[in-house]
Amino acid sequence: MTDWLVMVVVTTTSVGLALTLGIYGTVVLDRVIGRSIAGEPLRLTRALVGPFQHAALLLLQQRSDTERSDSATWAVAPALLGALAAAALAVVPLTPAVALEVSSGIVYFGATMAMVMVAVFLNGWSANSTFPLIGGYRFVAQALSFEMPLVLVLIAAALPAESLNVADIVRSQDTLWNVVRQPLGLPLYLIAALGVSFLGPLGLPDGIDLAGGTVAELSGTALLLWRAAQAAVLVAVSAMGAAVFLGGWLGPWLPGSVWMALKTLLLIALMVVAKHLFGRVRLERFVVVSWVVLIPVALVHVFLSGILALRRIGS
């Protein structure tokens, strides 16, 4: 019983801490990278304090309501998205000591990422307004297309570890990181990760061509929560990517948690750069590319990884 309690407390604190720092880091990185791409002076202090000021402003704003909105599901949507991010992060081993050993960790992660679709669709649907609804539709189309590559790539990474437990996958990269062992894995994963955190090229559900899409009718606290939850999802997928492809806590000199944080931030930074440099793709083209190229490539990737893993085990 006490073991169980300790585990819950440790996991909740570490996930909470990681998410808070991660969301803050994401916002700061977003501003810094955005300004350097725009060629503007960086103003680092402003970048560091800015998120708090912005959040305070939104907290003081009233929530708006639309005519005949589905207020219950509207309130649930950001909470669900944030909870999913936290739940996904819980199975990612942040340090060797704090690792929730779930024997089907990868499947669990895939399940939470599939649920993101529910949260985004609900957020778009509940406003009872056209642009958010179209945003919701768009995310469903987009999510059904990237979900398969996401899960397939993660399963391929599990093959050399002979385990679906994420901590085992990290341990299996002791000699060689998966980013080298499976060169196709990380690029495919990053595309899917951009999709699941609806960012940049795949930020279709809240594009400016829909005046903000799923967030068009949000204001105040609701908007703040939704943006925070979106950043939390980004943190969770980046942390998973760091654990599965970049060797998680493995690394010399520094403590494991620092390595993990650095690698996660690296992936977040990569995706934020993609957000600022690659404009939104056309949904139609993405869906076609996803089903015709990404999924077959992911299948081949699983097949090759399987052969390699078998040969390694055999020898």
Partner: peptide, 15 residues
């Protein structure tokens, strides 16, 4: 550029 989601590049052009 902004409508295509490239807000930062748009600002670069505006400058």
């Amino acid at each position: 550029l902004r409508v295509h989601g490239l807000e930062a590049l748009g600002r670069r052009v505006l400058m």
